[in-house]
Design a protein around this nucleic acid. Structure first.
Length: 406
RNA sequence: GGAGACGUGGCUGAGUGGUCGAAAGCACCUCACUGCUAACGAGGCAGGGUCUAAAAGCCCUCGACGGUUCGAAUCCGUCCGUCUCCGCCA
């Protein structure tokens, strides 16, 4: 949520920014309602003040008189407030100044490319062909047991998942991150507070009044809801592992093959609560850790400064890492590092105390490994002529084998 | 699932109809002191809204919502949450 004072003073900028991100907001209406609301607040406040006065004088007659008048105005105010919050919640976070403007990924800015896409001197297979032939991926059974866009990881791949998790946790706990296994269910109040409209618009799985999380961030961030950090405790960094659930509504026909885009996958995720002044350095730091992890696997990748239209509702800037996928002959998103500035902390009331003054923290998140996609990139980039797959050296001490089949 | 207790400021915790947005302690901030640090001393210190150039002022908030009352942290109802005991259980 943006500060209403900021919106009042920067109405045009806010409208423009929302449009650049592809969201529709009615700032003008918001300001009209805000105006009506404030006028009525004055009226209600002065009535309440009079009521207090009457109560102090034990003046029952005046008290009763005010009571009925107040009730009517208060009801009116409540309706206006509801409308006000509905409107202000529809205003997305502003993109930062160096975010490329554009509604889709064609405007993404490539920041750098690391490593060369590998040349193969044999006809390559995609991850599903490899997975089936090595008996490590089974989507057919998953379709029967669960539905489309699910998958079983079997044999060596099941072990590879744990290797990736251990590698990420070992690397990041060395950096001082707090390891954590969060709940994968959040309540609707939290879902609303995170500022991802996706939960309410059907992109999230709903169980009664709760949602399955789309990423570990979504339960780690609200863990500190209504809390105040000491400035000296910042940055507070977590590395979490959780399963992520996504409906993938609206992506029919997209990436339907294999396990590239599925309803359920596991992920190691970084979350950081920081002092606002450290936002940029923290963002770079998280990105550098992502690069460190990807580089260690020896995979060719590039870093992309995502276009405004690709940013999530609460996000001010997002850098993606895209790893080369040979069968698709292009780089595909495997990681992203976002700063949501104080947009989420405002909604969730997460502050820090500095020199006696409380202020909202900045919240950032970044992928360590999205397991499924990382496994795809390893399989495809490391495939051999004979159909076997070599395991990146850094993972071998965790897997206990050097190639698939072992 | 059954029985009981509780939910107050950044934290601990007092407060059972008006004198309470709230004692006390801790934390934090400012000042003073000390060769430095610590301790001690003096003062300050809940959050939000509204108005304002800024303040003062005024309003709201004691888990949430609703009710009783001229007046609610305090009484009543519903819900949510936490803890203890019992039951069940990976």
């Amino acid at each position: 949520m943006l500060d209403i004072k900021f919106i009042r003073e920067n109405a045009k900028l806010v409208t423009k920014a929302a449009n650049q991100k592809g969201y529709v907001t009615d700032v003008e209406k918001l300001l009209t309602v805000d105006d009506q609301r404030r006028k009525l607040i004055e009226v209600v406040d002065s009535l309440r003040s009079k009521r207090k006065e009457a109560a102090e004088k034990r003046d029952e007659k005046v008290g009763l008189q005010i009571k009925s008048e107040l009730k009517e105005k208060e009801d009116k105010l409540e309706k206006l407030n509801e409308e006000f919050y509905l409107l202000i919640r529809q205003v997305p976070n502003l993109p930062k100044d160096d975010v490329p403007i554009g509604l889709d990924d064609s405007k993404d800015e490539v920041v750098k490319e690391v490593g060369e896409p590998k040349k193969f001197d044999f006809p390559i297979k995609d991850h599903l062909e490899l997975g089936v032939s090595q008996d490590v991926i089974d989507v057919d059974s998953a379709a029967k047991t669960s539905g489309p866009r699910f998958g079983f990881l079997k044999n060596e791949l099941a072990l590879l998942e744990f290797a990736l998790i251990q590698f990420a946790f070992e690397t990041l706990t060395k950096e001082g991150f707090i390891p954590i296994i969060p709940p994968t269910v959040i309540n609707s109040k939290v879902a609303e507070g995170l500022g991802y409209p996706e939960y309410e618009t059907g992109e999230g799985y709903k169980i009664d009044d709760q949602y399955l999380v789309g990423t570990a961030e979504h339960s780690i961030v609200p863990m500190h809801m209504d809390k105040v950090f000491n400035e000296s405790d910042l940055p507070k960094r977590y590395v979490g592992f959780s399963t992520a659930f996504r409906r993938e509504a609206g992506s029919y026909g997209k990436d339907t093959k294999g396990i590239f885009r599925v309803h359920q996958f596991d992920k190691v995720e970084m979350v950081s609560f920081t002092n606002p002044k450290d936002d940029e350095s923290e963002h770079k730091y998280l990105l550098s850790l992502e690069e460190k992890l990807v580089s260690a696997l020896g995979l060719p990748y590039r870093v992309v400064n995502k276009a405004s239209g690709e940013l999530g509702f609460p996000t001010a800037q997002k850098f993606d890492i895209e790893i080369w996928i040979p069968s698709q002959n292009k780089y595909r998103e495997t990681h992203s590092a976002s700063t949501n500035t104080d947009f989420q902390s405002r909604r969730l009331n997460i502050k820090y105390l500095s020199k006696g003054v409380k202020n909202y923290v900045y919240i950032l998140n970044a992928t360590a490994f999205a397991i499924g996609r990382t496994i795809i990139t390893i399989m495809e980039n490391n495939q051999q002529k004979d159909g076997s797959i070599s395991i990146p050296e850094v993972l071998q001490k965790y897997t206990g084998f050097t190639k698939i089949p072992r």
